[in-house]
Design a protein around this nucleic acid. Sequence first.
DNA 1: GTCTATAAAAGGATAGAC
DNA 2: GTCTATCCTTTTATAGAC
Lengths: 217, 217
Amino acid sequence: MTLAKPQLTEGEISSDPGPKRTAIVGAATRVFLDKGYGAASMDAIADEAGVSKQTVYSHFGSKEALFEAIIEDKCNELLSRVSMQAPSLKSADAHDPERIFKNMGESFLLTVLAAPSMALFRVVIAESGRFPELAEAFYRAGPAVALDNLASLLEDLHQAGTLSVPDPSSSAKLFYAMLRGDLYIRRLLDLAAEPTPAERNAVVNEAVAAFLTAHAP
Amino acid sequence: MTLAKPQLTEGEISSDPGPKRTAIVGAATRVFLDKGYGAASMDAIADEAGVSKQTVYSHFGSKEALFEAIIEDKCNELLSRVSMQAPSLKSADAHDPERIFKNMGESFLLTVLAAPSMALFRVVIAESGRFPELAEAFYRAGPAVALDNLASLLEDLHQAGTLSVPDPSSSAKLFYAMLRGDLYIRRLLDLAAEPTPAERNAVVNEAVAAFLTAHAP
DNA sequence: GTCTATAAAAGGATAGAC
DNA sequence: GTCTATCCTTTTATAGAC
């Protein structure tokens, strides 16, 4: 008996994990990203989720498994955000690289320096010894994708003669490094707040100007 | 009574902290930098030092106090290394900035990408929430000093007309950011080993070339 | 100062009822 | 699946002898 199993409400696809599980995931995400792996307790996560500890263990077998699930989830989220920002070379912009790079730089900083990205990065760095596979997942979902996208754009611009980019991969790394600048370090150390639009703009302008000068045809 | 108090042996200044304390400091440094604050236990530190746990508590009152002492100590060590690398503008090199910058870049990467620096940086990042004053101490002992030194060199080169550097502070940040590049991220995530001399050289050459092009007079 | 032994508490994980 | 209650290890910190 019990015909209706998951009981779909209002057009939701059947992939709804269930409300309790959703609450656990949300709570664990907050606690892990806020306190770090070591200082996060399963009791705190259960409380934050409004659920008993045993329920947490029923869904995820152990603290390690829960942590891995959470971080992989956030990496996938990061991946989709980064993928969406893939720069497109519309033929209209082929001769105005400055606009392309400024737009890229702006959305890169907006994504990367935001509090959730920084929190994720901090935790992954801290636990890179204990969870090396998470460090690699993070790199592949974020930096690696962005680098690949930019490198192929640079190759196109080189072919078109707009810029001189003999080594697209290295130049892509250089561009992102210039964008991160010193602010990235201070954000990692939690010494600086998210930059204002004016601060972002100053960094982007300086980086783009230097990059274009260095790669003039 | 008890006339000779610290009992100076062989010309050592009276600042010798005593062998036990030295052993504790060494052990705590290794354990904290290897495991991180949370996963490091006072038992492990006492064992590593070959000393009882109570002795550790006699010298440093608590785990937090011990951690702070260790990290501040490493920051001072970092400070002296960075200060020693202050670039000097000999008049002979005033018209060969490429040599100055390549030397700077080389020793910067050598220091910063080395395992001890990375381990310290990882721990400080991980605990920046719990110990914000350590994050600031780290930044001031390392990045801030290097930036100040480079900025004043850039100002000299600008005055001499060798380079065009309207904003020395921003340009200094840009230069170090270019040097860190993508490798820094991968080192932070423990995905890459220390670079070979050839790899370092490639990064330095690319960064210096781009920097000089962007700041040509 | 240094050690052995011991508190006291926190946290990961499980048992068993519903 | 979910909850309450409990187990047991680890860990910070202290007491007391020497």
